[in-house]
Every structure is written in C-alpha cells, then in structure tokens.
Nucleic acid binder design. Sequence first.
DNA 1: AAGTGGTCTAGACCACAAA
DNA 2: TTGTGGTCTAGACCACTTC
Lengths: 245, 245
Amino acid sequence: MKIKTASSRVSETRRLIVHMIREQWAKEEGRLPSEERIAEMFGVSRSTVRAALGELESSGFIHRKHGLGTFVNPIASQIHARLDAWIEFKKLIEQSGFEADIQLLGLHKGPLSPDEAKKLGSSPGEPAVTVRKLFTADGQPAILCQDTIPLALLPPDCNAALLETSDTFHFLAKNGLGPVSYGVAHLIARCADAALADLLRIPAGTPLLALENVGYAPSDSPLFLSSELYCPGLIDFGIMRRHLY
Amino acid sequence: MKIKTASSRVSETRRLIVHMIREQWAKEEGRLPSEERIAEMFGVSRSTVRAALGELESSGFIHRKHGLGTFVNPIASQIHARLDAWIEFKKLIEQSGFEADIQLLGLHKGPLSPDEAKKLGSSPGEPAVTVRKLFTADGQPAILCQDTIPLALLPPDCNAALLETSDTFHFLAKNGLGPVSYGVAHLIARCADAALADLLRIPAGTPLLALENVGYAPSDSPLFLSSELYCPGLIDFGIMRRHLY
DNA sequence: AAGTGGTCTAGACCACAAA
DNA sequence: TTGTGGTCTAGACCACTTC
C-alpha cells in the first residue's frame, strides 16, 4: 500500500504508526511490527520508517531495544497532560477527563508594560490587546488564562469576536500571524489572593501553578504572551526528563 | 579529518556541533556551516550530520530554515534551567549562576508507604532507604530533595556514604543500578508550613514549586523516587513547548 | 542461524531563498 | 543561478537477543 505524499512520507508514516499504537497493537501487545515490516506495510523505505520512529522515540512515546523490537512506552501514556506539549486548553481539559467550557472574563486594549514589552522584544507603551478567560472542568474553575497580543501584529480587520470565543491558537492562525512554532514557559508557584480565590472558588492562600508563556513564530520572533494559572487537583502536569547533551 | 568512533559517528558529530555552537560560531554568527561543509569537516556523510542536527533541533538548540541555513536558537540558550533536562542539582544551581553546596539532613531505612510502593511498582512495606538533602545556592537554601530507593535494588555491600555526599545519579550509577534512562516528573504548587519555612529560611506560607519524580531504568522499570522542593526566586525553570503528534 | 534494531553511506532529486 | 536545507532510497554491514 503506497501512501499519498500529503505532507511527507516520514510524517505520514509517523501518523500511521501513532494510529497503530493507539488502535490495535499497543493495547495487548505493546510491541510494534519490525521496521522492515512497517516499511513494507506503508510502501516506504526502512530509513523513512526509522526517521518516523526516531521522532516518536525522542518524544518518549516509544523506545527501541536492540535485538528485541520497538515498544510502546507505557509510562508516557499515563501522562494525561504533558507540559512540553502545547495544546488548546479545551483539549487539555478533555484529555484530563473533564468536560471543558470557556468563560470570557474581559478584553481590553492598552499599552504594554515594560516587563511585557521586554518579553515581546517590543517597546513599552506599544498598544496591545489583552484577553482574560476562565476555563472550567466539569463546571469547576480549572485554568485562568490571560493572553496579550501586540496590536501591531494583528491585521486592521482583525476579528475580535474570535478572541472571545475560541482558543488563542485558533485566533492567531486565523489572523495572519501564521502558525505558532513553539513557546517557552517559565514555572512559578503562586498563592491565591482574595480576588483570585473568589474567582476560582478555592480557599484564599491555595497554592497555584503558574506558567508564564511566550509564543514564538518559526522565525523566533515573539508573538504573544500567555499567563496560565492552574487550580490544583484538576490538571496534573507531567513531564519526561532526561539527560541532554 | 576522520573522527574516531568512540560511541557513534552521529553522537560524536553532535558533540562536535554542540562544541561549535558554544565556542566560536554562535557568539557572533548565530549560524552554523552548511550541512555539506560540516560533513566535510568531520569526515562523515551528510546523512550523519543531518541526524545529529535533527537531535539538536528536537531539543530546541537549533532550528533550520529551508534555503537559508542552520541557526542557533537564541531563546533556548536563555533558559538556565530546563525542566526537561535531568541533571545533578549542583550543576543546576551552578548553571543558574550560584555557588552550590550540599547539606545532608537525614538518612533512614523504612518500609514503603502504599503510595510510594504504587509509584515504584513495588509492594507496600518493602524496605527502602530514604535520604533527605538540602542544596544551597550561595549559602541560601534552594532545593530540598528527598530520594527513596528500594533496598531490593541495591547490592548488599552498597556504599551508603556515597548517598550522603554525592548526587543520587552518581550514587545509582556506582551501585549497579545502571544508568537512569529517564524520569517522569509531576508538578505541584505547595505552601511552606512552619517547619519547612524554618528549614528553608523563608516566610511561612511561601508558595513553592514541587516536582515528584520517578526515575526509570532503560527497561522502563521504576528505580527510585525523588521529591524536589524549589525555593522561589533562585532556580527559574523554563521549558519549550510545542505541538506534538 | 534468524530476526531485530543500530549505523552509515552515496547519491538523486526537490523546494526555498537570495543575489 | 547558486547555495541551502528537505526528502527519500537501496543497500551494506554491525550488534544484540533468542532459539
């Protein structure tokens, strides 16, 4: 079976392997067919299969044992929320086993603070739009999010309604900012003050996990800021750690 | 110049490229030589160079632009402490710009709690050794760490002194547990209680970042537990996030 | 010996960007 | 047009594991 070169054979092969992992195999076997066999199945060369498997291995989804075979990593699949994965909050909440909902808290335009400008590689005072949203999990406040986007990056006819109802990723994609290539998050622990406690329906002083993100374009230029506050007990972030070079 | 196959040409090439990034090039250029050129320089094929570059790209150290070249990622180098990198605390503290020191708080043997046993895939009550250490940055308490290792995994003649003075990684490597392949951390925000505040010399109620780690062998079997508590303001964890498959 | 992943190569061709 | 990275292949050989 030849696969269509929708994007590239490697990524298509990777997609099919992911499918294979999720559907039939993994559940009982935990072991994938041999590289040669996969190559036959998809009509590509072994090198292509190895490239696809290599990507999956570096993300921790599988690991290969010399002389034995390729195995699904049972640990990775137990992480419901991967901190190194940047996904829409709705998906994140759903993956964690809850029903997700969005609540718009506010949207306003204003100048960038010096701190914000620094993170965005912009100048203080530059106009920007800031939107605050509350995401609920099974009706319970789960994630408080505040996104800030410099107006200079948005087209004049930008659709503000989208900002209110959809995820920031979608909004950016549909407003010419192109794809968000990656983000860098810094982690901080915070305690809920009175206002926050009220909003999130938790006791004042509750410790919260905060992520301060900067989103970057493929060119490494900063696109937007995103502050995320996570209520405890709902989203359990996990991350695989290894020795780097 | 042919390189020696110390481990593998790809990893040796990667090492040399990392060196290249750190030393000469990056600083002024930010751009690496072309793949063809690197291949010549190191006496390997372009495919080998691409494999090495691919690894560095997936870790975020470089990114490649079609038709333009390979560039050092300026963002990644600004992250002093990568959450996805598992390194010794001493290095972590030093990389963050401080002088590191270790202080042994206690070492005792006892049975595993049900929760610990579950994480380790072991049975409650199994004997284990637990060690508590405090790492200081410029003399100031920075990381409180508690490691738990099942006794069953350790050789009878295990060198307990090492546990006290060195990092857990070193201890494990030198006691037959082999290399720690990877770890999975879960993130939690905590508030310092009175005892903790006293120990860490911070106000009671200060929010702390906590990492609950499980270390795994290459075979995916759990090796040890590691609880880490980070005092605010010293170690600033960053993490690159992207869209996964 | 058979099957598996690990390593590496040489080379072809494509796609993008700049001059 | 030139130089760059992107994709893909076929095939050789090695190293580990099991039988």
